[in-house]
Computed example of a mutant assay.
Amino acid sequence: MMKISSLCRPLWYIALLFAVSCAEEQDFDQFNNLSIIPEVSSSIFYFESDEGTINAAGGGTFYEQDFTFEAFNEPFVSERVVNGTITYQIENTTSKPIAASISFLDNAGTVLDTENFAIGEHPFPLLERQVAYGEGGKSLDILRNTTLIKVTGENLGDASSTSSERTPVIIIRSSATFSLELR
């Protein structure tokens, strides 16, 4: 009997320690406080025009095109976007100074916003511009309501000069990164 009681005594102490130890109550509702904000990146448009096409159009507008923009057509996306950045990159190896504009239009054709670019002739360094939307930037409603993006290129130079580059072109490309709050 003595052996059994001496073996039970340590178990009794361990049970007592568990009973009086500090234990925090578990909170299984933490999932409700979890915030998931992934970033989604995508190309928006790519435009390229060679110097011959620019010369053939003469002075003035040599390019104008509308691009469908459906990124925010789904309520799931438009209601959850927190912020975003659109990045524009422009390269010009032509002998022409170029004016470019990128306009954001809604369903009714109303211009919601425009980005204008003045691009010098070659040698012109790569131009990169980032435009923020959301907190600290332009209104997210611009993007939420955009259905078309209009890109226009205008020759500000003559219609005959040619660059010494092998294949002179102007390239305008854009991409976007958006943060969506899923919870």
Results as ranks from 00 to 15, higher is better:
Gly59Val: 13
Thr146Pro: 01
Ser103Phe: 00
Leu156Gln: 04
Gly84Ala: 10
Gln89Phe: 10
Tyr63Trp: 04
Leu143Phe: 11
Gln26Gly: 09
Val20Cys: 13
Ile90Asn: 10
Gly60Ala: 07
Val82Pro: 03
Leu112Trp: 07
Val131Thr: 14
Asn116Ser: 06
Pro123Asn: 06
Ser95Asp: 13
Asp29Leu: 15
Phe72Trp: 15
Thr85Pro: 03
Ala118Arg: 15
Asn155Glu: 12
Gly153Tyr: 00
Thr147Leu: 02
Leu34Gly: 12
Glu154Asp: 09
Glu135Asp: 07
Glu115Arg: 13
Val131Cys: 01
His122Tyr: 15
Ala56Cys: 05
Ser78Gly: 01
Gln26Tyr: 04
Thr61Cys: 00
Val82Trp: 03
Val151Arg: 00
Glu154Arg: 14
Phe104Tyr: 06
Phe62Leu: 14
Pro97Gln: 10
Gly157His: 02
Pro123Lys: 05
Leu148Ala: 06
Glu154Val: 15
Asn107Asp: 05
Gly84Cys: 09
Glu24Ala: 12
Glu135Met: 04
Ser101Asn: 05
Glu121Met: 11
Phe72Leu: 03
Leu140Asp: 10
Val111Cys: 14
Gly120Asn: 14
Phe104Asp: 09
Asn55Asp: 14
Thr94Tyr: 13
Ile37Gly: 08
Glu91Ile: 14
Glu24Asp: 11
Thr146Ser: 01
Asn155Trp: 01
Thr147Gln: 05
Ala108Asn: 05
